[in-house]
Each structure stands twice: as structure tokens, then as C-alpha cells.
């Protein structure tokens, strides 16, 4: 091999591996985006047509359905390794999940609070951080707009209409996953 060929081989191997790792992370965005869109829309419609806010307990179905599916994604025939970026992405969204589930439980069972406002802000932050890690401006801007716009919307709109923020957030996660798949094709 010449020096040129060696460097080319290093660059190609490194980039191909990086792309495969990050394309695998995109599956998680698509999974959680689809779930968030479907569940928020279902709760919105059920609450809207029955007038019962108790349908909000369906939120707890999200981790129950999502985590087994996320584990299935990890069980590829070829185990996809982690790199620094995929690990940090996983960390950001795990922290978001921990905050969202704990705060929701506190809001439901202990201290009532405007949970939509809080969750949409941390969701926007998590999306922004993801964009920073992926060096992707559309994701950064979308996260910023979601956090700020969603917070204003959550303060202005009451009851079941607030759920539509999460439907939009779900679509945004789904689109982020699609962008990642295209970026690392």
C-alpha cells in the first residue's frame, strides 16, 4: 500500500463505521417519535371526546411499550458498537426520560404542576443538545423552537389542547431520526 492508499483506507473505514453507528441511533429517534405522536394523539382524542382527563394515565404506557422495543433494536444480528457521539446521545435522552417520568409521577401523585410546560422545555433542550452533538443546525433550531414555542403554547392553552404540543414534538423526533438516517446514509 502507498501512503495515499493507507490514509484513504483509514478515512473510509473510520467514516463507514461512524455512519453505521449513528444510523443505528436514528432508529431510537424514530421509535420514540412514533410512540410520542401516537400516544399523545390518542390521549388528546380520548380526552376530547369523553371529557375525561384520566386518559392521561396512558402516558405510562410509553415506557412500557418503548423500552422493550428499544431493547429489540439493540438485539441486531450484528451488534452495533457505541462511539463517543452515540454514547452522549444515549445519555442525553436517558436523562430526559428520567426527568420526564419522575416529574410526571410527582405531578400526578404528589404536587400538581404545569407538567406540559416543564416537559416541553426539557424536550426542547434534549433536542438542541442532540443537534449540537450531531453538528446539525436544523435539529438545533427545531429543538430551540420546540422548547420556546412549546413553553409559550403551554402557558396560553389549557386542558387537552396542550397535548398537541407533544404530538408536534413526536413528529419532530421522527423527523430528526429521518434526518440522521439521511445524514449518515
Amino acid at each position: 500500500m502507498t501512503a495515499q492508499e493507507s490514509l484513504q483506507l483509514i478515512t473510509e473505514s473510520f467514516n463507514k463505521s461512524r455512519k453505521d453507528i449513528l444510523r443505528n441511533s436514528a432508529k431510537h429517534f424514530i421509535l420514540w417519535g412514533t410512540l410520542l405522536t401516537a400516544i399523545s394523539l390518542a390521549i388528546y382524542l380520548l380526552w376530547h371526546f369523553t371529557g375525561k382527563p384520566q386518559w392521561n394515565f396512558l402516558w405510562f404506557a410509553m415506557p412500557v411499550i418503548g423500552y422493550p422495543f428499544a431493547a429489540l433494536i439493540g438485539k441486531n444480528s450484528v451488534a452495533i458498537p457505541q462511539n463517543e457521539v452515540s454514547k452522549m446521545l444515549g445519555g442525553v435522552w436517558s436523562v430526559f426520560g428520567a426527568f420526564a417520568i419522575t416529574l410526571s409521577a410527582i405531578a400526578v401523585f404528589m404536587v400538581p404542576m404545569n407538567i406540559t410546560l416543564i416537559i416541553v422545555i426539557i424536550l426542547g433542550l434534549a433536542e438542541c443538545f442532540s443537534g449540537v452533538l450531531l453538528k446539525n443546525w436544523p435539529i438545533i433550531v427545531a429543538g430551540f423552537l420546540l422548547g420556546i414555542g412549546g413553553a409559550v403554547f403551554a402557558l396560553l392553552v389549557k386542558s387537552e389542547a396542550q397535548l398537541l404540543i407533544f404530538t408536534l414534538s413526536g413528529v419532530l423526533l421522527l423527523v430528526t431520526g429521518m434526518i440522521m438516517k439521511l445524514q449518515y446514509k
Binding site: S13, S17, R18, A79
Partner: peptide, 23 residues
Amino acid sequence: RLAVMSILAGADEADFSFLKKQT
């Protein structure tokens, strides 16, 4: 060997099956 090292330089660790697929 260089391809394997390049992959491992950019990942925490890698399975044999992943290295086989990549190379």
C-alpha cells in the same frame, strides 16, 4: 489490520461480527 484499527479507533469496542461486516 489497518481497517480493523481504524474502526476500533473510532468506537469504544466492536464485535467480531461488526468488524467482519465492515471490512
